[in-house]
């Protein structure tokens, strides 16, 4: 069985707030032949919506440092968060310019590091779809999920499209296919392409505006009568999960839409228990969804 090694980039939110996504991914990976290497000493990516908005040079220095850690063993980076993905892929792209590379290495020399820009930054979806392949994933599915899932792709997965590996923002069906692979049905909803509202530093600066955006999406998902929302970005996940509680409080609504990160859904389909997938740690109860598919916490 073919094995692929990747440097797992954790970022901040996954290990420090939503470790269930980390746990689920670590359990699911070996089944797919993914060998995880730790990026020891990695820091915040740094967050594109905050740090890059404050100072580009700082952003460049820190992202290059993270890339240099991956370059130590040369494996491509596996990234679970759209924000970290956006940062790291932009960082690798920036380092292709010789002048920038020279300038950054002068900075890194001060901490005895060197970067080349030689490893690739890959999102989970790219790794699954292109490297592992749908066939291999399908083989690991033992327990099909019979549910209606809405999908939230997030923004930085596909944009800016000119430095992404997908070629086009239109007709992107990769995540639809990945979800359908687990046996679920993908449910379309109005505003599926809309931003969740968390990024760009908005969630920290103007929570209410940020929540108004996710509220609009929750309403559309509710209208489409989906059993859950599946996402591929933990920051969006946080916005939809903790955010949903905050939305209900702020706007007097009562949304109860379970939110799952893709590896949690995949793990369930591979036979892992909901507890193993950390589904008991969510803010919005996942129980109605589990009931629907014949499982329980």
């Amino acid at each position: 069985m073919e094995e692929h090694s990747y440097n797992l980039f954790l970022g901040c939110v996954i290990p420090n707030r939503l470790p269930q996504i980390e746990a689920a991914t670590r359990l699911v990976a070996p089944k797919l032949g993914i060998k995880i290497e730790e990026m020891k000493g990695a820091s915040c990516c740094p967050a594109p919506g905050v740090i890059r908005s404050f100072d580009n040079e700082t952003w460049l220095a820190i992202v290059s440092r993270n890339i240099s850690i991956a370059e130590e063993n040369g494996h491509d980076m596996l990234i679970l968060c759209n924000g970290c993905y956006g940062t790291l892929i932009a960082g690798v792209h920036a380092l292709q310019d010789p002048t920038t590379l020279e300038r950054v290495n002068k900075l890194l020399a001060g901490v005895k590091r060197k970067v080349k820009g030689s490893v690739k930054a890959k999102h989970l979806t790219e790794v699954l779809y292109k490297d592992i392949g749908m066939e291999r994933i399908e083989e690991t599915i033992t327990r099909p999920i019979n549910a209606r899932c809405a999908i939230h792709l997030g923004c930085h997965l596909l944009k800016p499209s000119d430095i992404r590996p997908w070629g086009t923002v239109e007709d992107f069906t990769v995540v639809d296919e990945l979800v359908e692979l687990t046996g679920a049905t993908v449910v379309d909803y109005k505003l599926a392409d809309m931003c969740c509202g968390a990024g760009g530093g908005l969630r920290s600066a103007e929570l209410k505006v940020s929540l108004d955006m996710v509220r609009e999406k929750l309403e559309a998902i509710k209208q489409a009568k989906a059993d859950c929302l599946v996402n591929v970005c933990n920051f969006c996940h946080l916005q939809f999960d903790i955010g949903q509680v905050q939305v209900n409080k702020e706007f007097g609504t009562d949304y109860q839409i379970p939110i799952l990160y893709y590896t949690q859904l995949l793990g369930l389909a591979q036979g892992f228990t909901p507890k193993q997938m950390g589904l008991d740690k969510h803010y919005i109860s996942v129980e109605p969804f589990l009931e629907k598919i014949g499982m329980s916490l």
């Binding site: 000493g41 700082t58 820190i62 001060g110």
Partner: peptide
């Protein structure tokens, strides 16, 4: 997690860089 949280030397590297860039 195996990030700067576990490796103080790594954290110092980050802080040094942040000082350098101002």
């Amino acid at each position: 997690p195996p990030t700067v949280h576990c490796y103080p030397k790594a954290l110092r590297e980050v802080q040094k860089l942040l000082k350098k860039t101002g």
